[in-house]
């Protein structure tokens, strides 16, 4: 698809995968009513890994990452995030959610709050950070996503790409150890995709653990250390990006890659 979005050298010096396990999913299953959406998922993510999940729509990739911070409930199997097991215990869920940042396809910024307030809200109320400190940190991250000058505007006044970068900054303000991206560029115009991808690459270069559901195969090839291909609710194939793209094993993967890279 858009292989051309990334045009700079990527600094891999800090992209180190450690032995520490960040997320461990074992035999996880999920149903919507009687529809089996996720089938026997087994996935271990180490600290510092950058994983891209690809697959046709309806394959369950979004559902999978939404299970990791309990936006969706799984019905069987086990999910352990940062040593905390996801159960129906609300305390655990809130603890996991404050460690795991999430970026949505439609940004989901809070339209009644300014950009700065969007970024300071959760640190102040969840982490009990003093307001001044939270604001300083928010400005730091807004600078990092290159929109400090928009801090006092409302989300509705920003372009899609800017909104998505604010959404990334908002997640980062909680100092998460893991970031989940749910199709972060799918709702954006082509010229805005690049600015969001650049922000994500910078994040990867600093060693953030990331799981991205995306169709940006250029990003997958250059940033990910592992690509996972899902279809019909199960993990069909996973490999390092070079191998995955150049030497796919399953027929389903070959067909998918030929469809999205073919032209």
């Amino acid at each position: 698809m858009s292989e051309l979005a990334i045009d700079r050298e990527i600094d891999r010096s800090k992209m180190q995968v450690s032995d520490e396990v960040a997320i461990e999913i074992t035999n996880m299953n999920k149903w919507y009513g009687s529809f089996h959406v996720l089938r026997d998922i087994n996935l271990t993510v180490n600290q510092g890994e950058r994983i891209v999940i690809a697959g046709p729509s309806g394959s369950g990739k979004s559902t999978l990452i939404r299970c990791i911070n309990a936006l969706e409930e799984h019905q069987a199997g086990k999910i352990v995030v940062d040593g905390i097991e996801l159960t129906s215990d609300l305390k655990n869920i809130d603890r996991i959610r404050s460690e795991v940042g999430m970026v949505f396809q439609h940004f989901n910024l809070f339209p009644h709050l300014t950009v700065l307030e969007n970024c300071t809200l959760a640190p102040i109320w969840v982490r009990k950070t003093p307001k001044k400190e939270a604001e300083e940190r928010a400005m730091h991250f807004l600078e990092k996503v290159k929109i400090p000058e928009q801090a006092d505007k409302y989300p509705g006044q920003l372009s899609g790409g800017q909104q998505q970068r604010v959404a990334i900054a908002r997640s980062l303000c909680m100092m998460p150890r893991i970031m989940l991206f749910d199709e972060p560029t799918s709702a954006l115009d082509p010229e805005m995709i690049k600015e969001v991808l650049d922000t994500m690459i910078e994040l990867a270069e600093e060693g953030m653990t990331m799981i991205c559901v995306t169709h940006e195969m250029g990003f997958a090839r250059q940033v990910a250390n592992r690509v996972i291909f899902m279809d019909a609710g199960q993990i069909v194939e996973q490999n390092e990006p070079e191998e995955f793209f150049n030497n796919p094993q399953s027929e389903r993967t070959k067909l998918f890659l030929s469809q999205i890279l073919g032209h």
């Binding site: 911070n69 603890r95 959610r97 949505f104 439609h106 809070f110 959760a122």
Partner: peptide, 15 residues
């Protein structure tokens, strides 16, 4: 309200 608002609030760890 779009469901995303609830999800964004949840994903930030707000109770």
């Amino acid at each position: 309200l779009p469901r995303g608002q609830y999800e964004a609030a949840d994903s930030l760890g707000l109770d």
